[in-house]
Design a binder for these strands. Structure first.
Lengths: 131, 131
DNA sequence: CCCATGTAATTAACGCGTTAACTACAACAA
DNA sequence: TTGTTGTAGTTAACGCGTTAATTACATGGG
């Protein structure tokens, strides 16, 4: 319950920024992974962006439709799909990154650097313990 | 991100139990609130169960259809809706509560009582700070 | 009384999480 | 080569979160 609320409280800070550019939270995560990695294959992308395969399929459709990414089959294995960030996608990342930074720093400052590290540490322990 | 994963890791423990009785996580929360409070009006119920009004409407339909709760208009104010837990609902709560207890205790034991309190404390601070 | 404003609940639309079923392709053995 | 098994993605179905629009009722001023 508390986890849910905390997550919601944090995301509420980012939502306006994403909504202003018509990008969902998950689309944003996918774009960021691609932005950092360049070309990634679907399964790994889903994993890194913490999105389930069915969701990724939908997200890919949306992002491809807006020319943010390109989609190609892997040569050598017709099952695999390779996703690559496109110029428009990079542009969006560049446009939003500073804003994101500000929001994040603000949260960190208000919550406290110490506490943030402590919290992340506890969460990781919890996750590892349960998975 | 970590918040999301942690929440997912924890809920994964409860999901099988709920699925076995064909109850969703939110339906379960609503039932528990009603179980503790008896009769509650819709807005307050949504608030206490941490569910948005549109979701509550859907949940009510489902729970009412299965005779777990009853729905009546408030006398004196035709807009308000009063929800009350029904015998079948109480029975479900009684049937699942012990199981729930075991799962919760197990998580607490594995994670550590200290850490759990610490985590909940941090989360609350975070929530309060952002809201 | 009548109308404007406010409030409670519902409905609608869209996207994601989750599970399961299905398609397409690959790998490997007979 | 063919058939079986495995793997990568996709599709489908259902429920919830989120926002906005809408309905039903209440309230207070004219």
């Amino acid at each position: 319950m508390a986890l849910l609320h905390a997550r919601e409280a944090v995301m509420a800070r980012f939502r306006p920024m994403l909504a202003a550019h018509d990008v969902t939270e998950q689309q944003w995560r996918v774009l960021r992974v691609l932005s950092e990695a360049g070309s990634v294959e679907a399964t790994e992308l889903a994993d890194r962006a913490s999105v389930l395969p069915p969701s990724l399929t939908r997200i890919i459709k949306a992002l491809e439709g807006r020319k943010f990414i390109t989609r190609n089959k892997a040569e050598g294995d017709g099952r695999r799909v390779i996703l690559t960030i496109a110029p428009a996608g990079s542009a969006l990342i560049d446009a939003l990154s500073p804003e994101r930074r500000v929001i994040y720093d603000d949260i960190e400052q208000r919550f406290g650097h110490e506490k943030l590290e402590q919290l992340l540490d506890l969460l990781e322990t919890l996750i590892d313990g349960e998975s």
